[in-house]
Amino acid sequence: MRGNLVTGILLLIFSVVFWFGADAIPKSRLSGSVGADGLPKMLAIALAVLSAGLIAQTLLTMKAAVQTAGADLNARAEQRALYLRAFGMIAIGAGYLVLVPYLGYILTIALLLLTVALYNGKRPSVGLFLFAALGSVFFYVLFVQVLAVPLPAGFWPRLIG
């Protein structure tokens, strides 16, 4: 419930920021009676009203159900650990994003396969490394050779000459 309240407040702040962002959109003679800022401003107002409603609804609910607060601290800690694990997947994706222009697709995708499998509980083994190596070759053949997607080559072409 506290999550709902925080979300409601953040959304309310976001709606205000969005309204000012919409207000800063340059005016154009081609826009007609409603400018490019017309719908964004309406949406900002709609979001503000709805998030105010969410805050009010949550406050009413919290008032009545306050007894349960703090009932299960262990469950909350477990939940937090699960969230952190989930965010780790995004961190791995971000790592791929940073490395791929430098290391090239084939090496980075191998690292991604290896890291995701390790992160999700697979123990290091020959099979795991084989999976990463063969997987990267499979993805390379599929995307670069078959589908002709120009995925980043990284430093390899410079190294070869």
Binding site: N120, G121, F143
Partner: peptide, 21 residues
């Protein structure tokens, strides 16, 4: 499961690039 998750993630990051490079 870890292998499947890794393969799906690989497919996502590679597939996305094929849209607009």
């Amino acid at each position: 499961k870890p292998y499947l998750m890794a393969a799906i993630f690989g497919l996502v990051v590679s597939g996305v690039y094929s849209i607009d490079h």
